[in-house]
Computed example of a mutant assay.
Amino acid sequence: MKWSEVCIHTTNEAIEPISNILHELGASGVVIEDPLDLIIDRDTMFGEIFELDASDYPEEGVYIKAYLPVNSFLVETIEEIKLAINNLTTFDIDLGKNQITLSEVNEEDWATAWKKYYKPVQITEKITITPTWEEYTRKNNEEIVIELDPGMAFGTGTHPTTVLSIRALEKYIKGNETIIDVGCGSGVLSIASALLGAKDIYAYDLDEIAVKSTEQNAKVNQVNKSIHTKQNNLLNDVHMEADLIVSNILAEIIVRFVKEAWDNLIHGGYFITSGIIQAKKQMVLDELEQQGFEIVEINELEDWVSVVAKKK
């Protein structure tokens, strides 16, 4: 069978919404080629233990690659992708060059080629994320290893927004918490929460593929009994008393459910938000403070921002 590789030249800001569009329109996985990944020795990361070919990467922006079967619907699907991506400008999302190119690949090449991009990555001093197909040996008994298969939902756990989220979870989870993960994706934040000692994690995502991916990855990491998944639109119709809410999602989406986050947190509970670009940081801070949240921390990694807020 032949597959068409769809390559979109865009910006870091547009990675998650475009990846979501690609999955909704039939892509079974995406590859992100970000030139920042070529900088192996950087102070803000613990370091990826693999080598990358610089010729695969753009000089500016990022490549998002997805694979679609070559069939009679391909032309219509590509047009739908273009239209959906162009509509992102209504949310003030910078699309950069926004160039889309197509190329054909054979099934046997596609089935394995994308996996070369995903290798074990040490996220914090304590946590390492590794693909399920990689052999990895713990450095010590205290190391937490999260195994992920990102093939079903975008998110390998190594994007700066995810790293910021996991670092915050590691700091604020003390044990036995009830946690809500809004926009769970591949489930990496829910899994990290469980492995760090949280008692119950409620993982929500509007995308059915993401919900299934979270369930699958939870089983791989043997924390499925602690993670309760549901297809849901943000926190609509959710009513509970959580100790912590985490959401790695677009800034434009975060500000839409700040009140619902407040209503579902205990007094003294934490709201960890990530996926925020520098230009949208103040917008999120203003919305949080207007609701009554106290800003506890603002952390930055590359061009991304994470905010930890507390319900006073």
Results as ranks from 00 to 15, higher is better:
Lys115Ala: 06
Lys171Asp: 05
Leu102Glu: 10
Asn248His: 05
Ser193Asp: 05
Thr162Asp: 07
Asn232Arg: 09
Glu16Gly: 06
Pro69Ser: 03
Phe154Thr: 05
Thr178Ala: 11
Leu88His: 12
Ile15Met: 13
Pro17Leu: 08
Gln291Glu: 15
Lys199Cys: 04
Thr162Cys: 07
Thr112Ile: 03
Glu104Tyr: 01
Ile127Pro: 01
Lys199Asp: 11
Gln290His: 14
Val307Lys: 02
Ile254Asn: 13
Gly269Pro: 09
Ala84Tyr: 11
Val246Ala: 07
Glu215Trp: 05
Ile64Cys: 07
Pro160His: 04
Gly47Asp: 00
Asn20Gln: 10
Leu285Lys: 10
Lys126Gln: 01
Trp133Thr: 02
Asp200Tyr: 07
Lys225Val: 12
Val255Ser: 09
Ile245Glu: 06
Gln291Leu: 12
Ala279Gly: 13
Ile129His: 00
Ile191Trp: 03
Asp286Thr: 12
Gly175Tyr: 11
Lys174Met: 14
Gly47Met: 08
Val238Pro: 00
Glu135Ser: 11
Gly269His: 08
Thr101Gly: 06
Gln282Lys: 12
Leu301Trp: 09
Ser72Glu: 13
His159Ser: 13
Ile32Met: 14
His239Ser: 10
Leu189Asn: 13
Val238Gln: 05
Glu24Gln: 15
Ala251Lys: 05
Asp205Tyr: 15
Asp263Glu: 15
Gly151Tyr: 06
Arg138Cys: 04
Lys212His: 13
Glu108Asp: 08
Leu288Asp: 07
Lys230Glu: 08
Asp237Ile: 09
Thr89Lys: 15
Asp263Ser: 11
Trp262Pro: 12
Leu169Ile: 01
Asn98Phe: 15
Pro160Arg: 09
Lys280Asn: 02
Ser19Ile: 03
Glu79Met: 08
Glu147Val: 04
Gly268Asn: 15
Asn248Gln: 07
Asp205Met: 09
Val246Met: 07
Ile21Gly: 05
Ala111Asn: 04
Ser213Pro: 05
Pro17His: 07
Lys2Trp: 10
Ile180Leu: 05
Thr137Gln: 13
Lys311Tyr: 09
Glu16Cys: 05
Ile85Asn: 12
Gly292Met: 08
Lys230Tyr: 02
Glu287Tyr: 12
Ala54Cys: 10
Ser186Lys: 01
Thr77Gly: 02
Gly175Thr: 14
Glu170Gly: 06
Trp110Asp: 01
Phe293Ala: 06
Gly275Met: 06
Glu135Ala: 08
Asn221Asp: 00
Glu5Leu: 00
Asp243Met: 04
Ser306Ile: 03
Lys65Val: 03
Val163Cys: 14
